[in-house]
Amino acid sequence: MSAVLEARGITKHYGHVEALADANFDVQAGEVVALIGDNGAGKSTLVRILSGAEPADSGEILFDGRPVHLSSPTDARALGMETVFQDLALAPHLSPVQNMYLGREVMRNGLLGKLGFMDAKSMRDGSRAAFDRLGATVRNLNGPVGSMSGGQRQGIAVARAAAWAQKVIFLDEPTAALGVVQTQNVLELVRRVSGEGIGVVFISHSMPHVMEVADRIQVMWRGRRVATYNKADTSMEQLVSAMTGALAQEAS
């Protein structure tokens, strides 16, 4: 099975700091890949580069086997890749529907649409369908998301990404600020998304969450991938030792 998204030999410098040194990465359709590593290992930098938010200094990104150039998040989105950032990037005063369709509004047909009128009903129906499909608990489609709980907001952010992503979703620490119940909801959501054939890249510090949801686990250390494991073949101890640099060379 070939990777839907693959990165080869990515390097990135911030001044004299080498954030990524010849990093490799791959994710396949319909799988959850956990990207783990200590602070400063380069996870977030790698995700920013793969989602088009930053350019790499050198290296190659292959999408469906073809080399692509991502100069902006819009390029990545055009390819069917969505990112849920750590700070969610929801507009707190807008409703779940408005957030879901922000930047992708459904316009009315004909002249009214050309004048900038939006089709509120079809956006509401579309949002409801997307939330229901993924089991996200959104009680009020019209209330501002700022007044909703962290779990609901995370659900909305993930559901939004899932609704638009055709191929790949990046989730940057989606469970970092959540309680137990909300975390379970989000992990369940991740499973459902991958079940729809989308490649999910799951960045987390939480080994139990990683072990619960990931199919494969890629470990980063000092700007490069040092190990890739299938969940079935690994243990938490092995992951932790890989994260702390016990393996200098990339395994497998």
Binding site: H93, T137, R139, N140, N142, G143, P144, G146, S147, M148, S149, G150, G151, Q152, A177, L178, G179, V181, Q182
Partner: peptide, 15 residues
């Protein structure tokens, strides 16, 4: 962190 289950059930349309 840790909004509780109770807030999850709270009416969301306050604002």
């Amino acid at each position: 962190t840790t909004p509780t289950v109770a807030t999850e059930d709270a009416p969301a349309s306050r604002l």
